[in-house]
Design a protein around this nucleic acid. Sequence first.
DNA 1: CTGTCTCTTCGACGGGCATCGAATAGACCA
DNA 2: TGGTCTATTCGATGCCCGTCGAAGAGACAG
Lengths: 113, 113
Amino acid sequence: MPLGRWAPLRHPDIADVRLDDVLQALADPTRRRIVRMLIAEGDRPCGTFGLDVAASTLSHHFRTLRAAGIIRQYDNGRQRFNTLRLAELDTRFPGLVDQILHAAAADADPAPR
Amino acid sequence: MPLGRWAPLRHPDIADVRLDDVLQALADPTRRRIVRMLIAEGDRPCGTFGLDVAASTLSHHFRTLRAAGIIRQYDNGRQRFNTLRLAELDTRFPGLVDQILHAAAADADPAPR
DNA sequence: CTGTCTCTTCGACGGGCATCGAATAGACCA
DNA sequence: TGGTCTATTCGATGCCCGTCGAAGAGACAG
């Protein structure tokens, strides 16, 4: 049974998710791309996003998204998978994430490759 | 005929408004309070918001909201009035601002007095 | 046990942000 | 003209963020 490798990988309870953190997290284009790829193609390990940033930077973005309550992470072998908490988020802030990503489509947001 | 006092008070064209800037601007609770007061009570001069920050800080927030394309400002006598660009924003990012402010109501967002 | 692969942590760098007080520029009033 | 009111700009402070490279912790294959 695969368990965490470092700190126990804390995910905030959905009730504790703060709007500030969600907006802050989604204000970054790279993180929006991550979210959109997760929507489009489901769970993925951290290393399969093909984004043009260093691994350590990517790790930082995942931490931010996780701390904001937007994604959930779980380890499997040597990979760490990412999954959206969209259903939970919609109970907390109904329609918010969809709205933001939809707005992103109307923006010059870089498409998720 | 009241005109500007300092720089010509540049407002971005609605087509140039970027999602990043809107989200960044609305990620701050103080600025969200400003927006909500504008929705609730219409145009207001900068000095009538009763927020617990220094005047210079408030000025910075108004500049941020204006640069993000969220508010429009115009001078009248010695006061500078603020008005929402909600209709324009809804043509650019339909429903986004409403959605965020609605989410703010579900959050521990400080009520606009 | 040794190497390899994945991902994180650490330390550093540059830049930006929220905040303040002081100084300043107009508008208005007396 | 001088004083007051409004709001800005400026400079400084402390903090956080995105980014990177290097080093380290597990998992796994030989």
